[in-house]
Design a protein around this nucleic acid. Structure first.
Lengths: 171, 171
DNA sequence: CGACGATACCTTCCTTGGAAGATAGATTGT
DNA sequence: ACAATCTATCTTCCAAGGAAGGTATCGTCG
């Protein structure tokens, strides 16, 4: 049926079974491959970001602002939470984007400590173009699987992700 | 049946459908979740490395040397290819590990340009202990899925990975 | 053998992000 | 109103890796 030729992970697992026969290395088959796939996907996705002059972090921030809807604003804390980086990293991302003229930063009206980061007109144009290409790119990458497989994969990943991101355990 | 409550990815997709109804954002459902799962897994795995005083890169190098079998030696080029980093990064990783006394570095007998990196006795002890814990940790993480799901996931990821790592396309 | 391109490793410089802590402003209890 | 504490953001310092280039050595072809 499907593809049972040994791949690199199979070779790695075989080596471990020889060297450490006391261990069950089957989890590597899933986790190792997941990391490798993620790495290759990142490489491919990053290439598109770069075509628009953006790094991965830049893209993430602009996309988060864009999907917030008009007027395309968020606080740094918000952005950091959404993109899973520390507040210090977010400061630097916004610094870069501000220097590049893609976002603006102004004090918050309602909180003297707060700032508001907003897409500039050019920032919106850039992320709209980049995101369009990004989606085409993801579609292309995902087309390696047929629709059924993609659905199965999504279901399995959603289930696994819930373990990490849902507050309660499973019902 | 399974868990159909909306998760963060669902919310992100919903926002995009509102803001960019012209785009089909379904690929995000798979690719976005895959990246998030990979990120959470990395966090969990890294915690165990750190318990043994190792960073992710250090662990990778030591594990590659260990599974090579006695006498646990590899060239820097070999190590770089196996762990997917550049040669410059590998120099620094080996520098660190050598400083920590976990590997040794000596000139190659057969190639005047070449070096041989070998696990020290302490390096072997460290990676054997770390790898044992690592596998228990991977098992724990994977136990979020039942055996059937894990098998399905492995099959799907293997198939996808083949697109990136196999020389030819599919037969 | 000698020159030239290829290879192996290392060095330098740069980018990115984390950790920890500093500062300004907000909030709460009295 | 004021002290104590919390919060939002930024700053500083450091770790890790990529890109590009340098140097020594190899291998091959004439």
């Amino acid at each position: 049926m499907t593809d049972d030729r040994p791949d690199r992970l199979d070779l790695i697992q075989r080596a471990w079974r020889t060297e450490r026969p006391d261990l069950d290395v089957r989890p590597q088959g899933v986790i190792g491959r997941l990391h490798r796939v993620a790495g290759h996907l990142t490489t491919e996705l990053t290439a598109v970001y770069q075509q628009h002059g953006l790094g991965e972090g830049d893209f993430d921030v602009l996309a988060t602002l864009r999907r917030a809807g008009a007027p395309y604003e968020r606080t740094p804390t918000d952005l950091a939470a959404n993109t899973l980086v520390t507040s210090g990293a977010m400061t630097k991302r916004v610094d870069r984007l501000e220097r590049a003229g893609l976002v603006t930063r102004r004090p918050s009206d309602v909180d003297g400590r707060g700032r508001v980061v907003a897409l500039s007109a050019r920032g919106k144009d850039v992320i709209d173009a980049a995101f369009t290409d990004h989606m085409a790119n993801e579609r292309r990458l995902l087309d390696a699987l047929d629709a059924d497989e993609a659905d199965q994969l999504e279901r399995l990943l959603k289930r696994w992700l819930a373990v990490f991101e849902e507050p309660s355990t499973r019902d």
